[in-house]
Design a binder for these strands. Structure first.
Lengths: 210, 210
DNA sequence: CCTATCTTTGACCAAATGGTTAAACTGTTT
DNA sequence: AAACAGTTTAACCATTTGGTCAAAGATAGG
């Protein structure tokens, strides 16, 4: 028997909730709007998810997992450190490109309700930089790269990848005369720009080794 | 006659509104909370500022002006380009340090209500990168710095300065094991880190000139 | 002291909002 | 077709929230 994967109600709700929560935030989101977006009665939201908070929790978990886990996996393969970092940057920008509003959503919600389940989600996400740290320290010892602080490095990478997306409305206005197409081109060129900048910052310069 | 600069009601309201709006956002902020914060009756909010939106507008204007205008002024003095950029980074991080929640507040509100008065505030803020662009292009022609795209450069600078503040809750958890003091130290070291990274990225390398 | 204006307050209002409930509907089992 | 469980809906509720209003306080001028 063929199981038709027609979107069932629960999925419809979750998808609608993702859309509304991510764009409007937990404060700005309205249960009625989520119901409308899903094309169902508002009571059904409470039938499947007991409260707004529970529904929000489901959305947040989903959003955070999308950005947290698979990233450090890149550092498990066998290529050299420069290739690893470059491919990390490329794939991270790709992910954001596909979900440009999620980073700001996450930052916001973590800032607002740092306590409670949000903190727990982060801890349980398995996101940690141990592999990254080990790798960087190893390469420094080997003399492949400069003596850099791995924490500064990871923040630099994240900043350069994420900021153009979350700051888009302002940057586009101030720096690009509000031209959307131009900004899309700009975003496309970011993978190379960020890769070059980061690689350049860890590459040994003449006379700096030892 | 001595004019005692005792905070009058209107100022009390604006200051309370700044605090509440900036930390909770326009959606999360409550008029009652602002009144409580100011220690006055809620009706007074409407007496001095006609509506929540008007009050919010006053706060947003203030916040945006604090971050927009004086920054490009640095590029008017006579020092060399490296010094200019370095001092820009230093003073920008100083400003954010004094108002760590304003950047996220601005990004949020611009993202939410890009239209309307928010867009107007940005345009009327006098914030533009013409001076910066001219300066960079001049130095490239002179051969003082690499051939860089001035828009990539300014976005890089802003990203590296701003992101550690708006992403603090997450970064602190994931990268610093939720240690606040350690994160404060990290922020202090950012001025040098960002300056070095940016200067390094525009400095000519052997054999790259012409 | 009286009046006029500005400031402040508490009581109140209408709309919005998250949530509940009982009834209707649908599909499956016997 | 009757009974049952799962699903969906409309009507309703309590609370919150931005906002109004008339009256009370304060302040200054005549």
């Amino acid at each position: 028997m063929i199981k038709i994967d027609k979107e069932n109600t629960e999925e419809k709700i979750l998808n609608a909730a993702k859309k509304v929560f991510v764009t409007k935030g937990s404060d700005g989101a309205r249960m009625q709007e989520i119901a409308d977006e899903a094309g169902i009665n508002k009571s059904l939201l409470h039938y499947y998810y007991r409260s707004k908070e529970k529904l929000f929790a489901a959305v947040f978990k989903f959003a955070f997992k999308k950005f947290a886990p698979n990233l450090m996996g890149i550092f498990e393969n066998e290529s050299d450190i420069f290739t690893k970092i470059t491919s990390f940057i490329h794939s991270y920008i790709d992910i954001i490109n596909k979900n440009p509003f999620i980073p700001l959503f996450i930052i916001n919600e973590v800032s607002k309700k740092n306590a409670g389940f949000v903190g727990a989600v982060i801890k349980n996400s398995g996101m940690n930089i141990d592999l990254f740290e080990k790798e960087i320290k190893k390469e420094i010892k080997k003399g492949t790269i400069k003596q850099v602080d791995h924490r500064q490095l990871i923040v630099n990478i994240l900043a350069l990848c994420v900021f153009p997306f979350i700051g888009r409305p302002i940057i586009q206005k101030v720096v690009f005369e509000d031209n959307e197409n131009q900004y899309d081109d700009f975003l496309k060129s970011r993978k190379e720009e960020v890769s070059n900048l980061i690689i350049n910052s860890i590459t040994l310069t003449e006379g700096s080794d030892k």
